[in-house]
């Protein structure tokens, strides 16, 4: 029983990681007032960039760098459309998702001729599991052993990056001047402008931060858990991250718990297939798949607290009327 719990938690951590990274990405963007439904596209683009470069160079770090670059480039397109051109942010996000879905498959086919996939990664092109010191020796110790060597040790480095990004994000947003200003442009850009701070530049920096984190999330999929890019490999995780962001009420620590919850539902769905529960019988896999979205809707309905988005989210800022 205990072992099952540990295995479940281990799976939860693995599944939550890309969600968490993308969720924190969205947090930066939306806190600055730029709504981003293009998380999915940025993750997909990053997964492709990382997969392609890691294959060619056989170096996971270069792959990660490429993934981040692709994601930031897409983020800048979103920024250009929604900050500089004051376009509709939802429309821009939809466009990013289309572009990423099309370009990754098209270029993947052109470059690698494997139906849009990138070839399996060579040695060194993939992030390997980090084994913590003494993990093997401690394995046999009851309770502490499995906790330490299964749950804490033995993940990809990006998993630790994701969970360390939570306190870091909190610190940046709530304890630095940059963070204060970032939150301020998301609530009341005119006031920030009056203080002599460029709203556009603030928002661009937030969007770039969003791109970097999405780059981590996408790269994790293709060169850490996966071994290469597959067509549409994000499969809606960007939208799931968006749901998590709302569920977390745009707060970093909540984001972590929400992503763990959504990750747990995913892991549970896989595990519960074919298992008969008392009274209710077998729960279909689709229930677990839909549950995060249903929960988010229930939250949005105001039944679990109230989710109040940043006040200026989605509103382009016009400096002065001409």
């Amino acid at each position: 029983m205990f072992e099952t719990v540990i295995l479940m938690m281990d799976a939860t951590v693995r599944v939550s990681t890309p969600l968490l990274l993308a969720c924190l990405a969205g947090l930066f963007s939306e806190r600055s007032g730029v709504v981003d439904i293009g998380l999915e596209g940025k993750m997909l683009g990053a997964a492709f960039g990382a997969g392609a470069v890691a294959y060619v160079t056989a170096n996971a770090w270069l792959g990660l760098l490429a993934g981040i670059s692709v994601s930031v480039a897409l983020a800048l397109i979103h920024g250009f459309a929604s900050i500089s051109n004051r376009g509709n942010q939802i429309v821009s996000g939809v466009a990013i998702n289309f572009l990423a879905a099309g370009l990754t498959a098209l270029l993947g086919q052109t470059w690698f001729r494997q139906g849009g996939r990138t070839p399996s990664l060579p040695e060194g092109g993939r992030f390997t599991d980090l084994t913590w010191p003494f993990a093997e020796q401690l394995r046999e110790v009851p309770v502490v052993g499995p906790l330490y060597s299964e749950l804490l040790s033995g993940h990809k480095i990006l998993v630790y990056v994701a969970f360390l990004a939570v306190p870091l994000t909190w610190w940046i947003l709530f304890r630095t001047r940059f963070g204060l200003r970032l939150r301020a442009v998301g609530e009341n850009p005119a006031a920030v402008d009056t203080a002599g701070i460029s709203v556009a530049w603030m928002r661009y920096r937030a969007v770039i931060a969003c791109g970097i984190l999405c780059g981590f999330a996408g790269s994790y999929l293709s060169i850490a858990v996966g071994s290469g890019f597959g067509v549409n490999m994000t499969a809606g995780q960007g939208f799931m991250a968006l749901a998590a962001l709302i569920f977390a009420k745009w707060k970093p620590l909540n984001a972590m718990f929400t992503c763990l919850l959504f990750g747990f539902l995913d892991a549970a769905g896989t595990r519960m297939q074919g298992v008969e529960l008392p009274v209710i019988g077998e729960v279909p896999l689709q229930v677990f798949q839909a549950l995060p979205y249903v929960l988010t809707v229930v939250l949005l309905a105001g039944f679990i607290g109230k989710a109040i988005p940043p006040k200026a989210a989605g509103v382009p800022y016009l400096k002065e009327r001409s």
Partner: peptide
């Protein structure tokens, strides 16, 4: 490949919509 259509759609949405 047919993915080109998706790219074109994305570009049309970007230029005709967001931009």
């Amino acid at each position: 490949t047919r993915d080109m259509i998706i790219v074109i759609q994305g570009l049309v949405i970007l230029f005709a919509g967001a931009l």
